[in-house]
C-alpha cells in the first residue's frame, strides 16, 4: 500500500507549477505506470501528485514539414494509432505500439517515459536517434543534451515536458530484443537515416542509459547497409550486466539489433 499523498489535477501549466511548489516533495504524474508501481512498493513517497494529463498544451499530435510534434501527455496507444506518426515515422508508431502491454500503452505517456529516462525504455532511443527537441515549460532542450545517464535528465526541479518534436527522417527502423520476464528492452537500436547522415541510438544495454553509437553512425553514413556494421563492436565494459543478459551478450545484441534496424527500415523488428 502506498504512503499517504494528496492528488491535484492541474488544468494549466501555471497551476501545475503552483501545486508542485506547494508540496514538500511533490511529483508530477502523467500516465503513472512507472511512478505508481514504485509508490505501491513503498520505494517512492511523494507527498503530493500533480496530474498533468488535463493540460491542453500537453495534448495533440501535429506535423509541419519535417517536424512531427507530439504532446507530452499523449499515450503510447495514441502515438501508435496516430495517422500523422504512422505517415511520418512508421518505426516510431511501431515502437510506441511495442511498449509494455495494452494497459500500459493506454495510460503511459511519451512525456512521462522521457522524463523518467529508464535505461530500458524505448522512447529515449527514438528521441536521440531522431534528433528530437524536448520542449518544456521553460525552454527547448535537444535530445543530445537531455539524457544524462540512468534515470537522469536535464530537467530542472519542477520543469514540465510539454511537447516532443521529432525531425522526420528519410527512413528509420527500430529493432529490439526483449527481456523474457519484463519485456523491457534487453538491447534495442533505433536507426534513423537523414539528409545529414545517420543517427543510431541504443537503449536497454548501456550502463549509463541511452547512448549514440558514433562508430556505427559513421560507418552507416558512408554505406547504409547492414554489412557496414561488420567488425564494429561495443565495449562490454560499457554495458549493463544482469541475470537476463551479461555485458558481452548485450554488446552482441546491440550490434545485431542495429543491423536489423538498418535492414528493416520503416519497421519495428522484435528479435
Amino acid at each position: 500500500m502506498m504512503y499517504p499523498f494528496s492528488y491535484h489535477r492541474a488544468r494549466t501549466l501555471d497551476e501545475a507549477r503552483a501545486y508542485f511548489e506547494g508540496g514538500e516533495d511533490a511529483a508530477y504524474l502523467s500516465g503513472g505506470h512507472s511512478l505508481l508501481p514504485t509508490m505501491k512498493n513503498r520505494l517512492a513517497a511523494p507527498d503530493r501528485l500533480v496530474h498533468l494529463a488535463a493540460i491542453p498544451e500537453l495534448r495533440g499530435i501535429t506535423r509541419a514539414g519535417d517536424r512531427l510534434s507530439i504532446g507530452a501527455a499523449e499515450t503510447h496507444a495514441a502515438v501508435a494509432a496516430s495517422p500523422e506518426v504512422r505517415g511520418a515515422i512508421p518505426a516510431l508508431a511501431a515502437l510506441a505500439g511495442s511498449i509494455g502491454d495494452p494497459q500500459v500503452r493506454h495510460r503511459g505517456t511519451i512525456g512521462g517515459s522521457l522524463a523518467n529516462n529508464d535505461p530500458a525504455a524505448d522512447y529515449p532511443a527514438a528521441a536521440l536517434a531522431l534528433d528530437a527537441v524536448i520542449e518544456t515549460s521553460e525552454r527547448a532542450i535537444s535530445a543530445d543534451n537531455f539524457f544524462q545517464g540512468m534515470f537522469t535528465t536535464a530537467l530542472d526541479e519542477g520543469e514540465i515536458i510539454t511537447r516532443v518534436t521529432f525531425t522526420v527522417p528519410d527512413s528509420a527502423g527500430y529493432a529490439k530484443m526483449r527481456n523474457p520476464a519484463s519485456r523491457y528492452a534487453l538491447a534495442a537500436s533505433f536507426v534513423a537515416r537523414r539528409p545529414g547522415g545517420v543517427r543510431l541510438a541504443i537503449t536497454g544495454a548501456g550502463n549509463n542509459g541511452v547512448f549514440r553509437w558514433s562508430e556505427a553512425e559513421a560507418a552507416l553514413a558512408t554505406r547504409f547497409e547492414r554489412g557496414a556494421l561488420a567488425g564494429l563492436a561495443l565495449d562490454p565494459g560499457d554495458m549493463m550486466s544482469d541475470m537476463h543478459a551479461d555485458a558481452r551478450y548485450r554488446a552482441h545484441l546491440c550490434a545485431v539489433a542495429s543491423a536489423e534496424a538498418v535492414g528493416h527500415q520503416g519497421k519495428l523488428t522484435l528479435l
Binding site: 523474457p180 534487453l186 558481452r248
Partner: peptide
C-alpha cells in the same frame, strides 16, 4: 533456458558469435 543461457552455452562450446550473414 533463456536467450542468455543459450548465448552462454554457445560461447562455452567455443562457437563464435554468429552474425546474420
Amino acid at each position: 533456458i533463456t536467450p542468455q543461457r543459450i548465448w552462454q552455452a554457445l560461447s562455452d562450446a567455443g562457437a563464435t558469435a554468429f552474425d546474420r550473414e
